[in-house]
């Protein structure tokens, strides 16, 4: 196998699982709460900085910092739900007010990160260091960990939604909110739970990815935009769509990058998406408003 090909495949699978991991949280929240959470990148950043703080200021190992970062991100997302989302649930203007609130939270988080830390790039150590080469391509062990984690989380979320009482309740709420409340399912509390789970996923992505991209106050922005694209490509609210679209776009982007150069990667992805949306306006697995989790 040529080095180029292996490089493209490896990069594609790695990108794909990263995109999928970020998109999973976005698509869950959209599917269940009908909330377009533009603070998803900010939650990613909160998780990363908390982990950075634990590692560099408290001098604890990254394996301790990881769960703390994830919990902090989940708690931050839940707090966002309590203060900004819950008060407007079921009110007219929910879409607009939550859109503005989540953008506002993003701006506030990056400003806070600059004030508390500083705008310089930070380094979070990988969970596993080291790498090996395959056809002259460097495969990092952290990269393999990211791929494995992402796939495992998709499986976990799928099993949770399909077989557990609370997971089924999330689907029930997303499909027919009024009936769910008549079945004694606490709708608002279920929303809070979904938002916290999504926050934990974003925080985990933040801690695992920062060794690749470095950490700065805006480092959640690009992953969030990519995740948004993946979510739209896969069909808003579809978990399967997020998984498939993450890998399709990741691998496509990586091949374009390796064979035609970095400059073509983003335009190539957008071209692919535009073509796909002409054929399937609701995304790969979306069937409009009807399709829920």
């Amino acid at each position: 196998m040529s080095t180029q090909f292996v490089q493209a495949v490896w990069g594609g699978i790695l990108f794909g699982s990263v995109y999928g991991l970020m998109a999973l949280g976005l698509t869950l929240v959209w599917g269940a709460v009908r909330l377009l959470n533009l603070a998803h990148g900010a939650i990613f950043v909160v998780g990363s900085y908390v982990a950075f703080f634990v590692v560099s200021k408290l001098n604890l190992p990254i394996l301790v910092a990881l769960p703390i970062g994830v919990l902090a991100a989940a708690a931050f997302a839940y707090l966002m739900h309590l203060i900004f989302i819950r008060p407007v649930i079921g009110k007219p203007g929910f879409d607009n007010s939550t859109l503005i609130a989540t953008v506002g939270i993003s701006i506030a988080v990056s400003a806070a990160a600059i004030l508390i830390f500083n705008p310089e790039y930070k380094v979070i150590p990988p969970i596993i260091s080291g790498n090996f080469t395959l056809s002259d391509v460097q495969i990092t062990k952290q990269g393999l960990l990211v791929i494995g984690t992402s796939l495992a989380l998709f499986a976990l979320v799928y099993l949770f939604l399909t077989y557990t009482r609370r997971g089924m309740a999330i689907r029930a709420v997303s499909q027919q909110q009024e009936a769910a409340s008549l079945m004694a399912i606490p709708v608002v509390r279920t929303y809070g739970m979904v938002i916290a789970i999504s926050g934990a996923l974003a925080g985990l992505a933040g801690v695992l990815l920062s060794p690749f991209f470095f950490l700065n106050p805006n480092s959640g922005f690009n992953p969030m935009i990519q995740a948004l694209i993946v979510t739209i490509f896969g069909g808003l609210g579809s978990v399967r769509g997020a998984l498939v679209a993450g890998f399709v776009l990741g691998i496509f982007e990586s091949f374009v990058e390796v064979y035609y150069g970095v400059a073509w990667a983003q335009p190539g992805v957008f071209l692919l998406i535009i073509l796909m949306l002409i054929v399937r306006p609701n995304g790969l697995f979306g069937i409009g408003e009807v399709r829920r989790l």
Binding site: M168, R171, E178, A179, A180, S181, L182, R292
Partner: peptide, 29 residues
């Protein structure tokens, strides 16, 4: 949801099933 939990169970007009769930899953809910 609190009223339903207290034992007043309402079967509304239009059925309001969970469309993407199976018959058994609907019952379990």
């Amino acid at each position: 949801d609190a009223i339903a939990a207290a034992g007043l169970v309402h079967i509304p007009q239009g059925d309001l099933l969970f469309p993407e769930m199976t018959v058994t899953e609907n019952l379990l809910m």
